[in-house]
Simulated scan of single mutants.
Amino acid sequence: MTNVFEAQWEASQVEAMEALRAWAVAFAELNQQMSSWLDLPTTDANALGQVLWADSSGDPLSPARLGQRIGMTSGSVTVLVDRLEAAGLLARSREHSDRRRVTLRPTPAARERARAFLEESSAEIAAAVQGSSAAELATSTAFIRKMAAAASGATTRLRAARS
Score class of each variant (00 low, 15 high):
V77Q: 00
E136D: 04
P60C: 07
Q68G: 13
A138F: 12
G75N: 08
M147S: 10
A7M: 13
A11M: 08
K146F: 10
R94K: 07
R162D: 09
A126R: 07
T103Q: 02
E6A: 11
Q13C: 06
D59Y: 15
V102K: 03
L158A: 15
V102E: 01
T42S: 02
N46S: 15
E10H: 10
P106L: 13
P60T: 09
E29N: 04
V51L: 01
I125H: 04
A138H: 12
E112Q: 06
T139N: 09
D82H: 08
A64S: 14
S57G: 05
A142W: 09
A123Q: 01
M34V: 06
S12N: 00
A54D: 07
L20Q: 03
M72P: 01
R94H: 01
R157V: 14
V25I: 05
P41Q: 14
A86I: 09
S121N: 06
E18P: 07
R69Q: 07
L38I: 13
E85R: 04
Q50G: 08
F117W: 05
W23H: 03
S132L: 00
P60Q: 04
A16I: 06
M1T: 12
W9S: 04
G153D: 00
D59P: 12
G131E: 08
A138I: 10
F117Q: 02
D39F: 13
E120N: 03
V102Y: 00
S122K: 00
L104G: 01
A161Q: 13
E29L: 06
R159T: 14
L40Q: 09
A11Q: 11
D98Q: 01
G71D: 02
R101M: 09
R99I: 08
S152V: 11
Q8D: 15
I70L: 07
R92T: 03
V81K: 01
S56P: 11
A142M: 08
S152K: 14
H96E: 11
A126Y: 06
A154Q: 11
N31D: 05
E29W: 10
G49T: 14
L61V: 10
L61K: 04
A161K: 13
S132H: 05
T73Y: 07
A26S: 06
D44F: 07
A28E: 02
R159M: 15
A116I: 08
A87V: 05
L90H: 02
E95A: 04
A22R: 07
Q50A: 10
Q68E: 15
R69T: 08
L40N: 09
A134V: 15
R113W: 00
L52C: 03
L52M: 09
A161G: 12
T141P: 02
Q32E: 04
A154T: 10
A19P: 05
